[in-house]
Design a protein around this nucleic acid. Sequence first.
DNA 1: AGTAGACCTGGTCT
DNA 2: AAGACCAGGTCTA
Length: 299
Amino acid sequence: MGGAPYSFEIEIPRRYFDVGLSASSGQMFRWKQTANSEWVGANGKHWFRVRVLDGREAYRVESSGPPTVFQSLFRLDWDAADVTETLTRLGPELEPYLQAMPGLRLTRSGDAVETFFSFLCSANNHISRITGMVNHLAAYGPRLEVVDVIDLHRFPRVATLAKVEEAELREKGFGYRAATITQIARELESRGGEAYLRSLGAMPYERAQIELLGFKGIGRKLADCIALFGLDHTEAVPIDTHIWQAATRLYFPHWQGTALTDRKYEEASAFIRNRFGRLAGWAQQALFYENVVNWRTRK
DNA sequence: AGTAGACCTGGTCT
DNA sequence: AAGACCAGGTCTA
């Protein structure tokens, strides 16, 4: 299809920014590595194509958006060296996890709507299937571009998703989430849709969390994922099965092997948040993905 | 406040 | 190779 409106270089050491790792670590679900090992993906209304420049600590990016969009998406305005140093100082126990995941960054979605619906797909689910479901939802949006046979869509708006029928999603293999997703889409629209969602990003984390918990089908975990990955509340710490394992290993050994209850969720999440402040979400991401990659061998 | 089941589907393990 | 188990959980009883 037509050429990219924007083409630019991003110069940064790999240990501070690994696109593939950051794009495929469960924060976004619309990135793929092509046969010639480029990373192609979409977020909200933009698409991206990223290539590692041989022998250089740099990327060549083609995109529908200017460099600022890409930089914001991968939070390049945060200095990874600085973040890592601070996290290690505040929590020396994080060092092996950060070292194990060099170049993994906390991303910042440019589209709260996409993140909201992406994580609705994530409950009690595998990353591989979440990916398929999110791409099904994305297909309701207009096509932006085709890059290397990969269809890249603008993620649909709330009004579009609010019209989707439960049966339709069932047929696409959404299972019981077909019901919650369509119901929540309607509820979100009635609350003001995208503008409402964005307003949650402007309020304090605690208030946004309460708002999100008001949706039937959104519990603490999803609320925290949406807050962290979609609303830029970087102090949010979603506690899922992986973080629960890491948290009990590092901070609550007496809870190892026990079930995660509301109270324990609150305590573990707040502990990590208080320990790392606005960097807590970044710490969470390192702990999360390291555990995803290594949990099988660990047990 | 904590526990037990149910819930779609499909990867992974046995 | 068919069947159990489980996954970035949440709701209800």
